[in-house]
Computed example of a mutant assay.
Amino acid sequence: MTDALSPSFLSDLERSSARERLLLAACDLFCRQGINVTGVDAVVAAAGTAKTTLYKAFGSKEGLVEAVLEREGSLWRDWFVAKVDAIPGDATNKLVNLFDVLREWFAEESFFGCPFINAVGEHDKEDDRMREIALRHKKIVLDKIRELAKEARPHDPEGLTHELALLIDGAIVAALITRDPGVATHARNAAARILMK
């Protein structure tokens, strides 16, 4: 076991803390200003680290972008799934009311849209790297919706999953553009109508 006061332990802690600061700063800047317009200098200045620290931790700006997306995706999915699981009632009720969860997210001051949608929108459309990262995130979200859709519409869970996914993505983009969390209520109403079929 490493002694808590040893120099190697302290340097590991310092690296970890600098890495976390870089992730937090990059996430804020990428979401607020965009990935392409945010340079490495702005990230290291906001994080209070050296440029060499960024390159040691992530290898490149693209490595940092990928790390930010993986981190933010994991945190968001954990939050979203926990909120949906806490909705009382059956699967149908959870699927309709998950749009109230989205409304809560849209109302946050730090809501700047979905980092994955934004990243794909900003990057070269012939470069599949960002799309693949976004699809990995989307698959996990869809798996949660599909789990509920199997109970709510056993004769067509795939159709229901994709119908609701389109409403979710549309609500996210509409909330980003309009800055109106109320778009989630319109999506909720549409989901309720879909689930009556």
Rank of each mutant, 00 (worst) to 15 (best):
A175Y: 10
L176Y: 13
R153C: 09
P157V: 00
A175R: 04
A152L: 02
K139W: 00
D156A: 13
R136P: 00
V173W: 07
D143E: 11
K138I: 07
E147H: 12
A174E: 11
L164D: 01
D169Y: 04
D169K: 10
P154W: 01
I177V: 15
P154T: 00
V173G: 11
H162F: 15
G170F: 02
D169F: 06
I172V: 15
D143H: 04
A149S: 15
V141A: 14
R153A: 13
G170E: 09
P157L: 04
L148S: 01
I168M: 13
I140F: 07
K150C: 15
E163D: 15
I140D: 10
G170I: 03
T178H: 13
P154Y: 03
K144W: 02
P154R: 00
E147R: 09
L142I: 06
L167A: 13
K138C: 07
K139N: 05
A152M: 11
V173A: 15
D169N: 11
I172K: 08
V173N: 08
K144R: 14
T178K: 10
V173L: 14
L160Q: 05
K139R: 13
A165I: 03
D169C: 11
A152P: 07
R153M: 15
A174S: 13
R179I: 05
G170R: 13
I168L: 14
L176W: 04
T161G: 01
H137T: 01
